[in-house]
Amino acid sequence: MELLLQQIANGLSLGMAYALVALGLTLVFGVLHVVNFAHGEFYMLGALVTVLVVKSLGLPYIVALLIAIVLVSAVAWVMDIVAVSPVARKPGGDQIVLVSTYAAGLIIVETVLAAIGPTPIAVSGFSGIVHFGSVVLTMHRVFMFAAGIVMICGLYMLFTRTNFGRSLRAVAQSDYAAKVVGIDVERIKTLTFVLAGGIAGLAGGLIAPIITFNATMGLHAGIHAFVVVVIGSMGSIPGAVVCGLSLGMIESVLSIFLGQHVAATLIYSLLLVTLFVRPQGLFQGALR
């Protein structure tokens, strides 16, 4: 029982990382109507920047995290300019974006491998432990969960209370109507892509002290995010958050009994079952 509670608690922080990565993916799908196959690489880059800033520059972890958000947002912006908006604008471009972002993702991974190699790099986040009854969590996991909650609440405010958020939802619901009322649709799409990159960068920076950085971590995260987004309904933000957290917990709990690889396999099977039984996902309805 204690082990179970412990794994649920651990799963929540892992799930928060999934939720944040999935959130960006679903946001991009909801607003740009494309699937970004390189999205997981933003997460990897977030972890990389955090690790490098702490190790090489000796700056505090929290500063590294902020730098990661900024730099990864910048990378996302460049990717949008190079591999997304010019491609998506063409007829049938939403399909071609799959390939162009896949290529961009490979370029990122290979570049990182060439520059720093495949060796995992560890970094420490916040030290200390916290007791919740019999459950013991590292301070860092608690911080990670809290940071995720703050991010999600911030996004909620952004979407519901600001002009940018309202315009973003307008574009998600109808490109054409958004153009008619004078929204700069291309700009909103670019900003959405950058925002999604920044959120993934934060997630990567948050997870780095927990799973140690390696250059291929983005691939794994990207696939997980994809599972979360499909199960949680493409384009649904609540779906991404709830399914991300659940998936983290399920994976964490299952790994007690089945080992990590079997747990992951089960989760991918869940994807297939969802596609078969309820292809629109559990949280139908587009981004609101």
Partner: peptide, 18 residues
């Protein structure tokens, strides 16, 4: 071409976008 998932009020406010 109204915004289907938004309230009437939000639709009106979007008329002010620019």
């Amino acid at each position: 071409h109204v915004f289907p998932q938004m309230s009437v009020e939000e639709n009106l406010l979007l008329g002010l976008t620019a």
